[in-house]
Simulated assay, not measured.
Amino acid sequence: MRYFIYISYLGKGYSGWQIQKNGYTVQQVIEEALGKLLSRTITISGSSRTDKGVHATQQVAHFDSITPIDPVHLTYRLNSVLPSDISITAIRPVVEAAHARFDACHRRYAYTIITHKDPFYRDRAVWLRRTPPLGLLNQIAALFSVQADFEFFSKTTDATRGFICNIEEAAWVAIDDKIVFYIQANRFLRGMVRTIVGTILKVATGKMDSATVAELIQKKPNTRPILTLMPAHGLTLVEVGYPPSLFVQQNVS
C-alpha cells in the first residue's frame, strides 16, 4: 500500500532534502527512521527538492508498505525517534499510483524578511535594515503572476522538465514586524523563488528597472543577467496540494 507522509523541518542542520553522497539530508534521516521502525529498507520520494538551509512546514513524500500500517501510531513512533528539528504531521493512505512529486497540483513557498534583529528568527528569516514600501513590492511582484519560461530565474542545471511554470500567486504580506513573500505555482525550478525575491528587491531599490524584468520573463534576451540569489534560510515550503481523489480511507484493526 502507498502512503503520503507529511513532514515539517528546519533546514539549518541539513544539506537539503534529497539524499546525496556527501551530505546529511532530511530524506536520509526519515528513511533511516522508517526502516528501523518497519524492519525493512524504505525509500521515500519527495514532492520538492529543498536546498541546503531551506525549511518546510509541509513537505510531502510517498512510500510503500507491503502490509497495512496504522498512520496515527506510526506518526507517533516516528516523532519519538526523529531529531527535534524534524516532525511528521500526518501519514495518509493514497491510491497505488499516487506520486508525491508528479501528482502535486501546486506548491506554495514563503520567504520571510524581518525589519529588526530578532534572535528567534535568525535561522528562519533574513534581516534587512530597510525594506521598500509594501505597495511597491506588490506592484513588482505582479509581473511574475504569469505562465512563462523562467529559465533566467533558475539555476542553469535544472532542465529536467523544461522551464515553463504557471505562477498563480505572487504577493507580499505584512505580518507584525515581518514582511512575507508568498508564491504559489504548479512547479518551481531550482533557486527560482530566492532569485525572484532578490529580483523584486533589486527593482524596488532602483538597481534594476521593471522593463528589464518583463523582458527576462517574456522575451528571453541573449545575454543572461546577473541576478541576486537570496539566502536559503529565509525560504520555507509551506504547502503542497493534491487532488482529493488520490486519498483513500483505511480501516486499521
Rank of each mutant, 00 (worst) to 15 (best):
D123R: 12
V26H: 02
I86E: 02
H62P: 00
F63M: 06
Q139R: 10
Q249M: 11
F63E: 09
G46E: 08
I7M: 10
L201I: 03
T236K: 08
G162L: 06
H62N: 09
L34K: 07
R92A: 10
A98N: 07
S47D: 05
L137M: 15
V173H: 15
N251P: 00
S65C: 14
G241P: 05
P231D: 10
T131C: 07
Y121H: 14
F144K: 03
F153S: 04
R108Q: 14
L134N: 11
F120S: 12
I183P: 06
Q139L: 08
L34M: 11
K155A: 09
L134H: 08
R190V: 04
H99I: 03
V72Q: 06
V26K: 02
D103G: 08
I44M: 11
I196L: 11
G162F: 04
V238W: 10
A104N: 02
N79I: 03
L189E: 07
V60T: 02
K12E: 04
M208V: 01
A171H: 13
T115E: 15
I179V: 14
M230K: 06
L34D: 09
V26I: 15
Q139F: 05
Q18V: 12
T43N: 09
S80T: 12
I164D: 10
G23K: 00
V173S: 14
G206P: 09
D158A: 08
F144R: 01
D123T: 13
K202E: 13
R122V: 13
V29W: 01
I175C: 11
Y24Q: 00
Y111L: 05
I88T: 07
R129S: 11
K220T: 07
R224Y: 09
P133L: 07
C105H: 13
V95M: 12
Y242H: 08
S253A: 12
S80H: 14
A100Q: 07
S15Y: 03
A204Y: 07
H62W: 03
I179L: 13
L246C: 11
E151W: 02
R77W: 11
P83R: 09
K178L: 15
T112I: 15
A125F: 10
A148G: 02
P68M: 09
A110F: 13
Y121T: 14
P71E: 06
S253W: 07
D70L: 03
Y9R: 01
T131P: 00
F188W: 05
S87C: 11
Y182T: 12
T199M: 08
A211F: 04
L128E: 09
K117Q: 13
R161H: 15
I179N: 05
M192K: 07
A170E: 09
R77A: 15
A90E: 13
T156H: 10
A204P: 10
Q27N: 02
G206I: 04
S145N: 08
G53K: 01
